[in-house]
Design a binder for these strands. Sequence first.
DNA 1: ATAATAAATGAACAGATGTTCATATGTTAA
DNA 2: TTAACATATGAACATCTGTTCATTTATTAT
Lengths: 115, 115
Amino acid sequence: MDGDNPYLHAQEDLVARVKEALPEDEVLYDLAELFKIFGDSTRVKLLYILSVSEMCVQDLAQLLGVTQSAVSHQLRALKASKLVRYRREGKTIFYALADGHVRTIIDQGLEHVAE
Amino acid sequence: MDGDNPYLHAQEDLVARVKEALPEDEVLYDLAELFKIFGDSTRVKLLYILSVSEMCVQDLAQLLGVTQSAVSHQLRALKASKLVRYRREGKTIFYALADGHVRTIIDQGLEHVAE
DNA sequence: ATAATAAATGAACAGATGTTCATATGTTAA
DNA sequence: TTAACATATGAACATCTGTTCATTTATTAT
């Protein structure tokens, strides 16, 4: 213990080493943005639903018990995060998951919640 | 196409089937709460750091560039979600991840972000 | 063209969130 | 018991978020 050090408590070596191990700030920021998407019950439900089957906006709204507008707004967020894709069929637009990652992340989360 | 049906568009069978497949509302709510924790850059950083090494509050604050108070508040949230544990050593309290799930979830997220 | 239907968008607003500041609690050493 | 240090907590505040309502855009059928 070097009594002169004003930061007596700090394990400076450790701090430095961990700092090395950290991903870029921007990456961690993007990561938080991604999880933010999953951090709303309407959106996780949306994602879970779409992991079961593609579906049109109105059916999603009905299943979620919210406005068509609300779903549309949320789908916009999911699109921006590349989590969903969509296809138009006449007046109707069908949304689907962009890839399998989503379900994997959800399932990991469910495992933790189940404990 | 049954033209009399006021919900012409809806694939009611599908909606019903998917409804069956959905986890309980409460589970999905808890799931969202869990991901909400990961959905803030201060907190993911915290979690990432702790996945590398246990650490005391002051060092965490230094590493994150925020107040000791801010870290303490966030750690409270992490404790409430059973994501971290802690041990006291004199005046200092060392925080650590509660289990390995956290890192798994983070790594899954990082994979998606990396694309 | 016009009407009808599906989805998207913008404005507005209530409620939640994350931070700092000030202060309290707990622990150790003098 | 007092001083010093580490952490926790409460209040206050600015910002962010998610929803609804009203409206617009896009597509199809008449």
